[in-house]
Design a protein around this nucleic acid. Structure first.
Lengths: 229, 229
DNA sequence: AGTTATTTTCAAGAAAGTTTGAAGAAGGTG
DNA sequence: CACCTTCTTCAAACTTTCTTGAAAATAACT
Protein backbone atom coordinates (compact mmCIF):
# COMPACT_ATOMS: atom_id res chain seq x y z
CA UNK A 1 0.00 0.00 0.00
CA UNK A 2 1.18 3.45 -0.88
CA UNK A 3 2.41 5.53 2.04
CA UNK A 4 0.17 8.31 3.23
CA UNK A 5 1.68 11.75 3.50
CA UNK A 6 1.02 13.83 6.59
CA UNK A 7 1.71 17.54 6.84
CA UNK A 8 2.21 18.94 10.30
CA UNK A 9 1.99 22.69 10.87
CA UNK A 10 3.17 23.21 14.41
CA UNK A 11 5.66 25.66 15.82
CA UNK A 12 6.73 23.81 18.94
CA UNK A 13 9.69 21.76 17.89
CA UNK A 14 9.33 19.07 20.52
CA UNK A 15 5.74 18.40 19.56
CA UNK A 16 6.79 18.30 15.93
CA UNK A 17 9.35 15.68 16.85
CA UNK A 18 6.88 13.68 18.83
CA UNK A 19 4.32 13.64 16.04
CA UNK A 20 6.86 12.97 13.33
CA UNK A 21 8.51 10.13 15.17
CA UNK A 22 5.31 8.33 16.00
CA UNK A 23 3.61 8.74 12.69
CA UNK A 24 6.70 7.64 10.80
CA UNK A 25 6.89 4.58 12.98
CA UNK A 26 3.42 3.77 11.82
CA UNK A 27 4.15 3.97 8.15
CA UNK A 28 3.38 7.56 7.28
CA UNK A 29 5.50 10.05 5.41
CA UNK A 30 5.66 13.10 7.63
CA UNK A 31 6.66 16.66 6.77
CA UNK A 32 6.73 19.30 9.47
CA UNK A 33 6.41 23.04 9.00
CA UNK A 34 6.74 25.80 11.53
CA UNK A 35 5.24 28.68 9.63
CA UNK A 36 2.30 29.15 7.34
CA UNK A 37 4.58 30.38 4.61
CA UNK A 38 6.70 27.23 4.53
CA UNK A 39 3.56 25.18 4.79
CA UNK A 40 1.92 26.63 1.69
CA UNK A 41 5.18 26.33 -0.15
CA UNK A 42 5.24 22.63 0.62
CA UNK A 43 1.59 22.32 -0.30
CA UNK A 44 2.27 23.63 -3.76
CA UNK A 45 4.67 20.75 -4.34
CA UNK A 46 3.07 17.76 -2.70
CA UNK A 47 -0.55 17.32 -1.71
CA UNK A 48 -0.68 15.44 1.59
CA UNK A 49 -3.31 12.89 2.58
CA UNK A 50 -4.01 14.72 5.79
CA UNK A 51 -3.02 17.89 7.61
CA UNK A 52 -2.42 18.35 11.34
CA UNK A 53 -2.85 22.01 12.09
CA UNK A 54 -2.00 23.84 15.28
CA UNK A 55 -4.07 26.90 16.12
CA UNK A 56 -1.30 28.89 17.71
CA UNK A 57 1.30 29.89 15.19
CA UNK A 58 3.93 32.62 15.12
CA UNK A 59 3.21 34.17 11.75
CA UNK A 60 -0.42 33.33 11.07
CA UNK A 61 -3.50 32.27 12.89
CA UNK A 62 -4.47 28.63 12.43
CA UNK A 63 -7.99 29.65 11.57
CA UNK A 64 -6.76 31.73 8.71
CA UNK A 65 -4.85 28.75 7.36
CA UNK A 66 -7.87 26.53 7.70
CA UNK A 67 -10.25 28.88 5.96
CA UNK A 68 -7.73 29.43 3.21
CA UNK A 69 -7.43 25.67 2.77
CA UNK A 70 -11.14 25.10 2.73
CA UNK A 71 -11.85 27.87 0.27
CA UNK A 72 -9.25 26.70 -2.22
CA UNK A 73 -10.64 24.08 -4.57
CA UNK A 74 -7.23 22.46 -4.82
CA UNK A 75 -7.00 21.89 -1.12
CA UNK A 76 -10.46 21.84 0.35
CA UNK A 77 -10.72 18.10 0.03
CA UNK A 78 -7.75 17.41 2.27
CA UNK A 79 -8.85 16.35 5.72
CA UNK A 80 -7.61 18.56 8.54
CA UNK A 81 -7.19 17.74 12.19
CA UNK A 82 -6.90 20.80 14.40
CA UNK A 83 -4.57 20.78 17.36
CA UNK A 84 -5.72 23.07 20.13
CA UNK A 85 -4.12 23.88 23.43
CA UNK A 86 -6.96 25.31 25.41
CA UNK A 87 -10.50 24.38 25.93
CA UNK A 88 -11.63 27.84 24.88
CA UNK A 89 -9.85 27.49 21.61
CA UNK A 90 -11.52 24.21 21.07
CA UNK A 91 -14.89 25.83 21.59
CA UNK A 92 -13.98 28.39 19.02
CA UNK A 93 -13.18 25.67 16.54
CA UNK A 94 -16.61 24.24 17.02
CA UNK A 95 -18.25 27.62 16.96
CA UNK A 96 -16.70 28.62 13.72
CA UNK A 97 -17.65 25.44 11.96
CA UNK A 98 -14.82 25.91 9.58
CA UNK A 99 -14.73 22.43 8.36
CA UNK A 100 -11.97 20.74 10.22
CA UNK A 101 -12.53 17.01 10.22
CA UNK A 102 -11.46 16.44 13.76
CA UNK A 103 -9.55 18.06 16.56
CA UNK A 104 -7.14 17.07 19.26
CA UNK A 105 -6.61 19.00 22.45
CA UNK A 106 -3.19 19.26 24.01
CA UNK A 107 -1.92 17.41 25.82
CA UNK A 108 -2.77 14.39 23.73
CA UNK A 109 -1.64 10.81 23.94
CA UNK A 110 0.22 9.19 21.09
CA UNK A 111 -2.44 6.58 20.84
CA UNK A 112 -5.12 9.21 20.48
CA UNK A 113 -3.16 10.94 17.77
CA UNK A 114 -2.68 7.77 15.78
CA UNK A 115 -6.29 6.77 16.24
CA UNK A 116 -7.63 10.08 15.02
CA UNK A 117 -5.37 10.20 12.00
CA UNK A 118 -6.31 6.71 11.04
CA UNK A 119 -10.00 7.24 11.58
CA UNK A 120 -10.14 10.47 9.64
CA UNK A 121 -8.18 8.98 6.78
CA UNK A 122 -10.39 5.96 6.62
CA UNK A 123 -13.51 8.04 6.81
CA UNK A 124 -12.53 10.42 4.07
CA UNK A 125 -11.12 7.65 1.92
CA UNK A 126 -14.42 5.88 1.83
CA UNK A 127 -16.21 8.89 0.52
CA UNK A 128 -15.88 8.67 -3.20
CA UNK A 129 -15.77 11.93 -5.06
CA UNK A 130 -17.03 10.37 -8.21
CA UNK A 131 -20.50 9.08 -8.71
CA UNK A 132 -20.82 5.35 -8.78
CA UNK A 133 -22.96 3.23 -10.98
CA UNK A 134 -22.59 2.46 -14.64
CA UNK A 135 -20.98 4.40 -17.41
CA UNK A 136 -21.88 3.44 -20.95
CA UNK A 137 -20.48 4.53 -24.24
CA UNK A 138 -21.29 2.78 -27.49
CA UNK A 139 -20.67 -0.89 -26.80
CA UNK A 140 -18.51 -0.17 -23.80
CA UNK A 141 -20.00 -0.54 -20.34
CA UNK A 142 -18.22 0.12 -17.09
CA UNK A 143 -19.70 -0.87 -13.76
CA UNK A 144 -17.88 1.14 -11.12
CA UNK A 145 -19.45 -0.55 -8.11
CA UNK A 146 -18.60 -4.00 -9.31
CA UNK A 147 -15.34 -2.89 -10.86
CA UNK A 148 -16.20 -4.63 -14.10
CA UNK A 149 -15.84 -3.70 -17.70
CA UNK A 150 -17.78 -5.05 -20.65
CA UNK A 151 -17.37 -4.75 -24.36
CA UNK A 152 -20.25 -6.17 -26.35
CA UNK A 153 -21.66 -7.58 -23.14
CA UNK A 154 -18.50 -9.53 -22.71
CA UNK A 155 -16.62 -9.21 -19.46
CA UNK A 156 -13.04 -8.08 -19.90
CA UNK A 157 -10.52 -8.19 -17.11
CA UNK A 158 -8.52 -4.99 -16.63
CA UNK A 159 -5.77 -4.12 -14.22
CA UNK A 160 -6.13 -1.23 -11.83
CA UNK A 161 -4.33 1.30 -13.97
CA UNK A 162 -6.10 0.21 -17.12
CA UNK A 163 -9.43 0.48 -15.39
CA UNK A 164 -8.68 3.96 -14.09
CA UNK A 165 -7.49 5.15 -17.47
CA UNK A 166 -10.56 3.89 -19.24
CA UNK A 167 -12.79 5.35 -16.55
CA UNK A 168 -11.34 8.79 -17.13
CA UNK A 169 -11.87 8.52 -20.86
CA UNK A 170 -15.38 7.22 -20.53
CA UNK A 171 -16.37 10.02 -18.17
CA UNK A 172 -15.40 12.54 -20.83
CA UNK A 173 -15.73 11.04 -24.26
CA UNK A 174 -13.73 12.94 -26.82
CA UNK A 175 -11.80 15.03 -24.36
CA UNK A 176 -8.06 14.93 -24.88
CA UNK A 177 -5.91 14.19 -21.85
CA UNK A 178 -2.21 14.86 -21.83
CA UNK A 179 0.09 12.29 -20.37
CA UNK A 180 0.74 14.58 -17.44
CA UNK A 181 -2.92 15.03 -16.73
CA UNK A 182 -3.39 11.30 -16.70
CA UNK A 183 -0.35 10.83 -14.50
CA UNK A 184 -1.67 13.41 -12.10
CA UNK A 185 -5.11 11.93 -11.90
CA UNK A 186 -4.18 8.30 -11.63
CA UNK A 187 -0.70 8.26 -10.22
CA UNK A 188 -1.16 11.30 -7.99
CA UNK A 189 0.28 14.77 -7.78
CA UNK A 190 3.46 13.58 -6.21
CA UNK A 191 4.42 10.91 -8.71
CA UNK A 192 7.94 11.15 -10.01
CA UNK A 193 8.09 8.95 -13.04
CA UNK A 194 8.37 8.88 -16.77
CA UNK A 195 5.40 10.01 -18.75
CA UNK A 196 6.25 7.13 -21.09
CA UNK A 197 4.67 4.90 -18.53
CA UNK A 198 1.30 6.15 -19.64
CA UNK A 199 1.96 4.97 -23.18
CA UNK A 200 2.61 1.47 -22.06
CA UNK A 201 -0.57 1.32 -20.05
CA UNK A 202 -2.49 2.73 -22.96
CA UNK A 203 -1.09 -0.10 -24.99
CA UNK A 204 -2.19 -2.72 -22.48
CA UNK A 205 -5.58 -1.11 -22.36
CA UNK A 206 -5.90 -1.15 -26.15
CA UNK A 207 -4.73 -4.73 -26.22
CA UNK A 208 -7.25 -5.85 -23.65
CA UNK A 209 -10.27 -4.11 -25.05
CA UNK A 210 -9.33 -5.30 -28.52
CA UNK A 211 -8.74 -1.87 -29.90
CA UNK A 212 -7.46 -2.31 -33.41
CA UNK A 213 -5.57 0.79 -34.61
CA UNK A 214 -6.96 3.17 -32.02
CA UNK A 215 -10.62 2.83 -32.82
CA UNK A 216 -11.49 3.50 -29.20
CA UNK A 217 -8.47 5.17 -27.67
CA UNK A 218 -7.22 7.70 -30.14
CA UNK A 219 -3.71 9.13 -30.12
CA UNK A 220 -3.50 12.86 -30.55
CA UNK A 221 0.07 13.34 -31.62
CA UNK A 222 1.89 15.94 -29.57
CA UNK A 223 -1.02 16.14 -27.14
CA UNK A 224 -2.11 12.91 -25.58
CA UNK A 225 -5.01 10.51 -25.83
CA UNK A 226 -8.76 10.60 -25.99
CA UNK A 227 -11.76 8.41 -26.41
CA UNK A 228 -12.65 8.43 -30.08
CA UNK A 229 -16.17 9.56 -30.85
CA UNK B 1 -37.86 6.96 -1.07
CA UNK B 2 -39.15 5.66 2.21
CA UNK B 3 -38.34 7.78 5.21
CA UNK B 4 -35.45 6.65 7.33
CA UNK B 5 -36.10 6.09 10.97
CA UNK B 6 -33.72 7.49 13.54
CA UNK B 7 -33.68 6.47 17.20
CA UNK B 8 -32.19 8.94 19.61
CA UNK B 9 -31.21 7.84 23.09
CA UNK B 10 -30.41 11.00 24.96
CA UNK B 11 -31.53 12.20 28.35
CA UNK B 12 -31.20 15.94 27.92
CA UNK B 13 -34.55 17.10 26.67
CA UNK B 14 -33.30 20.19 24.90
CA UNK B 15 -30.76 18.22 22.91
CA UNK B 16 -33.45 15.70 22.08
CA UNK B 17 -35.56 18.55 20.77
CA UNK B 18 -32.72 19.97 18.78
CA UNK B 19 -31.92 16.68 17.12
CA UNK B 20 -35.52 15.76 16.53
CA UNK B 21 -36.42 19.09 15.01
CA UNK B 22 -33.49 19.19 12.66
CA UNK B 23 -33.59 15.61 11.51
CA UNK B 24 -37.33 15.78 10.90
CA UNK B 25 -36.82 18.89 8.85
CA UNK B 26 -34.50 16.86 6.73
CA UNK B 27 -36.89 14.08 6.06
CA UNK B 28 -36.21 11.59 8.79
CA UNK B 29 -38.63 9.92 11.17
CA UNK B 30 -37.26 10.55 14.62
CA UNK B 31 -38.06 8.82 17.91
CA UNK B 32 -36.44 9.97 21.10
CA UNK B 33 -35.89 7.96 24.24
CA UNK B 34 -34.57 9.06 27.57
CA UNK B 35 -33.81 5.73 29.17
CA UNK B 36 -32.36 2.46 28.04
CA UNK B 37 -35.51 0.67 29.06
CA UNK B 38 -37.79 2.72 26.81
CA UNK B 39 -35.25 2.45 24.07
CA UNK B 40 -35.17 -1.33 23.98
CA UNK B 41 -38.91 -1.38 24.18
CA UNK B 42 -39.08 0.74 21.06
CA UNK B 43 -36.45 -1.35 19.40
CA UNK B 44 -38.55 -4.45 19.77
CA UNK B 45 -41.31 -2.79 17.75
CA UNK B 46 -39.50 -0.91 15.02
CA UNK B 47 -35.95 -1.40 13.78
CA UNK B 48 -34.49 2.04 13.02
CA UNK B 49 -32.10 2.85 10.20
CA UNK B 50 -29.67 4.44 12.59
CA UNK B 51 -29.18 5.05 16.29
CA UNK B 52 -27.76 8.15 17.96
CA UNK B 53 -26.51 7.11 21.34
CA UNK B 54 -25.43 9.35 24.16
CA UNK B 55 -22.83 7.97 26.54
CA UNK B 56 -24.17 9.63 29.65
CA UNK B 57 -27.53 8.24 30.59
CA UNK B 58 -29.48 8.19 33.83
CA UNK B 59 -30.33 4.52 34.07
CA UNK B 60 -27.68 2.78 32.01
CA UNK B 61 -24.24 3.44 30.66
CA UNK B 62 -24.11 4.06 26.93
CA UNK B 63 -21.39 1.47 26.58
CA UNK B 64 -23.64 -1.18 28.01
CA UNK B 65 -26.29 -0.28 25.47
CA UNK B 66 -23.79 -0.39 22.65
CA UNK B 67 -22.30 -3.72 23.59
CA UNK B 68 -25.77 -5.14 24.01
CA UNK B 69 -26.71 -3.89 20.56
CA UNK B 70 -23.59 -5.21 18.93
CA UNK B 71 -23.81 -8.62 20.49
CA UNK B 72 -27.43 -9.15 19.53
CA UNK B 73 -27.72 -10.59 16.03
CA UNK B 74 -31.02 -8.77 15.56
CA UNK B 75 -29.49 -5.40 16.18
CA UNK B 76 -25.83 -5.61 15.44
CA UNK B 77 -26.32 -4.44 11.88
CA UNK B 78 -27.87 -1.12 12.86
CA UNK B 79 -25.37 1.70 12.56
CA UNK B 80 -24.69 3.60 15.76
CA UNK B 81 -23.29 7.08 16.16
CA UNK B 82 -21.97 7.79 19.64
CA UNK B 83 -22.51 11.19 21.22
CA UNK B 84 -19.85 12.09 23.73
CA UNK B 85 -19.53 15.15 25.90
CA UNK B 86 -16.02 14.92 27.18
CA UNK B 87 -12.64 14.16 25.83
CA UNK B 88 -12.18 11.36 28.33
CA UNK B 89 -15.34 9.75 27.11
CA UNK B 90 -14.09 9.79 23.59
CA UNK B 91 -10.86 8.18 24.64
CA UNK B 92 -12.85 5.46 26.26
CA UNK B 93 -14.84 4.93 23.07
CA UNK B 94 -11.61 4.50 21.20
CA UNK B 95 -10.10 2.34 23.85
CA UNK B 96 -12.97 -0.08 24.02
CA UNK B 97 -13.31 -0.49 20.29
CA UNK B 98 -16.86 -1.57 20.52
CA UNK B 99 -17.74 -1.14 16.92
CA UNK B 100 -19.68 2.07 16.74
CA UNK B 101 -19.88 3.57 13.28
CA UNK B 102 -19.02 7.14 14.07
CA UNK B 103 -18.93 9.58 16.91
CA UNK B 104 -19.82 13.15 17.48
CA UNK B 105 -18.81 15.37 20.37
CA UNK B 106 -20.94 17.83 22.26
CA UNK B 107 -21.43 20.57 21.60
CA UNK B 108 -21.97 19.69 17.99
CA UNK B 109 -23.27 21.78 15.16
CA UNK B 110 -26.46 20.82 13.44
CA UNK B 111 -24.64 20.79 10.18
CA UNK B 112 -22.14 18.30 11.51
CA UNK B 113 -24.84 16.07 12.90
CA UNK B 114 -26.72 15.95 9.62
CA UNK B 115 -23.56 15.29 7.69
CA UNK B 116 -22.51 12.39 9.88
CA UNK B 117 -25.93 10.79 9.81
CA UNK B 118 -26.04 11.09 6.06
CA UNK B 119 -22.59 9.62 5.57
CA UNK B 120 -23.18 6.68 7.84
CA UNK B 121 -26.52 5.94 6.24
CA UNK B 122 -25.09 6.14 2.78
CA UNK B 123 -22.37 3.74 3.73
CA UNK B 124 -24.76 1.23 5.14
CA UNK B 125 -27.74 1.77 2.89
CA UNK B 126 -26.85 -1.06 0.57
CA UNK B 127 -26.99 -3.35 3.49
CA UNK B 128 -30.52 -4.05 4.52
CA UNK B 129 -30.98 -2.85 8.04
CA UNK B 130 -33.79 -5.26 8.67
CA UNK B 131 -31.70 -8.06 9.96
CA UNK B 132 -34.30 -10.70 9.56
CA UNK B 133 -35.17 -13.35 7.09
CA UNK B 134 -33.10 -15.30 4.67
CA UNK B 135 -30.65 -14.24 2.02
CA UNK B 136 -30.10 -16.66 -0.81
CA UNK B 137 -27.62 -16.62 -3.59
CA UNK B 138 -27.01 -19.60 -5.81
CA UNK B 139 -26.48 -22.51 -3.45
CA UNK B 140 -25.69 -20.24 -0.52
CA UNK B 141 -28.37 -19.58 2.06
CA UNK B 142 -28.02 -17.34 5.06
CA UNK B 143 -30.58 -17.34 7.82
CA UNK B 144 -30.10 -14.11 9.71
CA UNK B 145 -32.57 -14.86 12.49
CA UNK B 146 -30.95 -18.14 13.35
CA UNK B 147 -27.49 -16.93 12.50
CA UNK B 148 -26.93 -19.97 10.33
CA UNK B 149 -25.36 -20.47 6.99
CA UNK B 150 -25.95 -23.24 4.50
CA UNK B 151 -24.22 -24.31 1.37
CA UNK B 152 -26.04 -26.97 -0.60
CA UNK B 153 -28.48 -27.30 2.27
CA UNK B 154 -25.62 -28.22 4.48
CA UNK B 155 -25.09 -26.27 7.66
CA UNK B 156 -21.68 -24.64 7.91
CA UNK B 157 -20.42 -23.12 11.10
CA UNK B 158 -18.96 -19.67 10.73
CA UNK B 159 -17.38 -17.36 13.25
CA UNK B 160 -18.82 -13.93 13.92
CA UNK B 161 -16.47 -12.10 11.60
CA UNK B 162 -16.82 -14.64 8.85
CA UNK B 163 -20.57 -14.45 9.09
CA UNK B 164 -20.59 -10.66 8.93
CA UNK B 165 -18.26 -10.64 5.97
CA UNK B 166 -20.34 -13.09 4.04
CA UNK B 167 -23.50 -11.25 4.98
CA UNK B 168 -22.19 -8.05 3.47
CA UNK B 169 -21.18 -9.81 0.29
CA UNK B 170 -24.46 -11.66 -0.01
CA UNK B 171 -26.50 -8.49 0.41
CA UNK B 172 -24.78 -6.96 -2.58
CA UNK B 173 -23.61 -9.65 -4.93
CA UNK B 174 -20.90 -8.43 -7.21
CA UNK B 175 -20.23 -5.19 -5.42
CA UNK B 176 -16.60 -4.64 -4.56
CA UNK B 177 -15.75 -3.74 -0.99
CA UNK B 178 -12.38 -2.32 -0.07
CA UNK B 179 -10.67 -3.60 3.04
CA UNK B 180 -11.31 -0.29 4.71
CA UNK B 181 -14.99 -0.39 3.95
CA UNK B 182 -15.21 -3.85 5.42
CA UNK B 183 -13.25 -2.76 8.45
CA UNK B 184 -15.54 0.19 8.95
CA UNK B 185 -18.69 -1.84 8.62
CA UNK B 186 -17.71 -4.87 10.62
CA UNK B 187 -15.07 -3.67 13.01
CA UNK B 188 -16.40 -0.12 13.43
CA UNK B 189 -14.83 3.27 13.01
CA UNK B 190 -13.02 2.90 16.30
CA UNK B 191 -11.08 -0.14 15.26
CA UNK B 192 -7.41 0.43 15.39
CA UNK B 193 -5.82 -2.41 13.54
CA UNK B 194 -4.27 -3.60 10.33
CA UNK B 195 -6.29 -3.93 7.17
CA UNK B 196 -4.42 -7.21 6.61
CA UNK B 197 -6.71 -8.65 9.20
CA UNK B 198 -9.45 -8.63 6.63
CA UNK B 199 -7.40 -10.87 4.35
CA UNK B 200 -7.03 -13.47 7.02
CA UNK B 201 -10.72 -13.56 7.73
CA UNK B 202 -11.45 -13.81 4.06
CA UNK B 203 -9.16 -16.79 4.01
CA UNK B 204 -11.01 -18.47 6.86
CA UNK B 205 -14.29 -17.70 5.18
CA UNK B 206 -13.11 -19.20 1.92
CA UNK B 207 -11.81 -22.22 3.74
CA UNK B 208 -15.04 -22.81 5.57
CA UNK B 209 -17.40 -22.41 2.67
CA UNK B 210 -15.16 -24.57 0.55
CA UNK B 211 -14.27 -21.85 -1.89
CA UNK B 212 -11.71 -23.33 -4.20
CA UNK B 213 -9.70 -20.60 -5.96
CA UNK B 214 -12.11 -17.77 -5.29
CA UNK B 215 -15.18 -19.15 -6.96
CA UNK B 216 -17.38 -17.39 -4.45
CA UNK B 217 -15.28 -14.67 -2.90
CA UNK B 218 -13.33 -13.01 -5.65
CA UNK B 219 -10.22 -10.92 -5.10
CA UNK B 220 -10.09 -7.67 -7.03
CA UNK B 221 -6.45 -6.82 -6.97
CA UNK B 222 -5.80 -3.29 -5.82
CA UNK B 223 -9.41 -2.87 -4.74
CA UNK B 224 -10.75 -5.47 -2.39
CA UNK B 225 -13.12 -8.40 -2.45
CA UNK B 226 -16.53 -9.20 -3.83
CA UNK B 227 -19.00 -11.99 -4.28
CA UNK B 228 -18.39 -13.52 -7.67
CA UNK B 229 -21.41 -13.62 -9.95
C1' DA C 1 13.18 11.04 -49.93
C1' DG C 2 15.53 12.45 -45.84
C1' DT C 3 15.31 14.21 -41.26
C1' DT C 4 13.33 14.82 -36.89
C1' DA C 5 9.94 14.32 -33.34
C1' DT C 6 6.81 11.40 -31.36
C1' DT C 7 4.65 7.11 -30.40
C1' DT C 8 4.50 2.04 -30.14
C1' DT C 9 6.46 -2.24 -29.04
C1' DC C 10 9.19 -5.46 -26.45
C1' DA C 11 11.18 -7.65 -22.64
C1' DA C 12 12.99 -7.97 -18.15
C1' DG C 13 13.64 -6.39 -13.61
C1' DA C 14 11.28 -3.91 -9.83
C1' DA C 15 7.52 -3.10 -7.14
C1' DA C 16 3.15 -3.87 -5.28
C1' DG C 17 -0.52 -6.64 -3.64
C1' DT C 18 -2.20 -11.19 -2.02
C1' DT C 19 -2.00 -15.64 0.06
C1' DT C 20 -0.23 -18.70 3.26
C1' DG C 21 1.65 -20.66 7.49
C1' DA C 22 2.33 -20.21 12.07
C1' DA C 23 2.34 -18.32 16.57
C1' DG C 24 0.60 -15.61 20.12
C1' DA C 25 -3.31 -12.88 22.30
C1' DA C 26 -7.87 -12.50 23.70
C1' DG C 27 -12.12 -14.20 25.11
C1' DG C 28 -15.37 -17.47 26.56
C1' DT C 29 -16.66 -21.92 29.03
C1' DG C 30 -16.85 -25.85 31.92
C1' DC D 1 -7.49 -22.79 35.79
C1' DA D 2 -7.15 -25.42 31.66
C1' DC D 3 -9.21 -25.87 27.26
C1' DC D 4 -11.13 -24.33 23.17
C1' DT D 5 -12.31 -21.09 19.67
C1' DT D 6 -11.67 -16.91 17.44
C1' DC D 7 -8.99 -13.00 16.33
C1' DT D 8 -4.77 -10.51 15.17
C1' DT D 9 -0.18 -9.97 13.64
C1' DC D 10 3.97 -10.97 11.13
C1' DA D 11 6.92 -12.43 7.58
C1' DA D 12 7.92 -15.34 3.73
C1' DA D 13 6.38 -17.16 -0.65
C1' DC D 14 3.99 -16.09 -4.48
C1' DT D 15 1.48 -13.71 -8.22
C1' DT D 16 0.35 -9.96 -10.97
C1' DT D 17 1.07 -5.49 -12.34
C1' DC D 18 4.07 -1.60 -13.16
C1' DT D 19 8.05 0.72 -14.85
C1' DT D 20 11.78 1.61 -17.72
C1' DG D 21 15.20 1.79 -21.45
C1' DA D 22 16.01 0.84 -26.02
C1' DA D 23 14.72 -0.37 -30.55
C1' DA D 24 11.29 -0.20 -34.12
C1' DA D 25 7.64 2.14 -36.25
C1' DT D 26 4.97 6.01 -37.59
C1' DA D 27 3.80 10.67 -38.69
C1' DA D 28 5.09 15.40 -39.81
C1' DC D 29 8.02 18.63 -42.07
C1' DT D 30 11.36 20.47 -45.36
Amino acid sequence: MKKKTVYVLEDEKNIQQLIKFNLENNGYDVFCFSTGKEFFLGLSRIIPSIILLDIMLPDTDGYVILSRLKSDPHYHGIPVIMITAKKEEFDKVLGLEMGSDDYITKPFSVKELLARVKVVLRRTENISIYPTGKIEYKDLVMDIDKHEFYRNNQLIKLSMKEFSLLEIFLRNPGKVYTRNQLLEQIWGFDYFGESRTVDVHIRYLRMHIGDENGRYIETIRGMGYKLAE
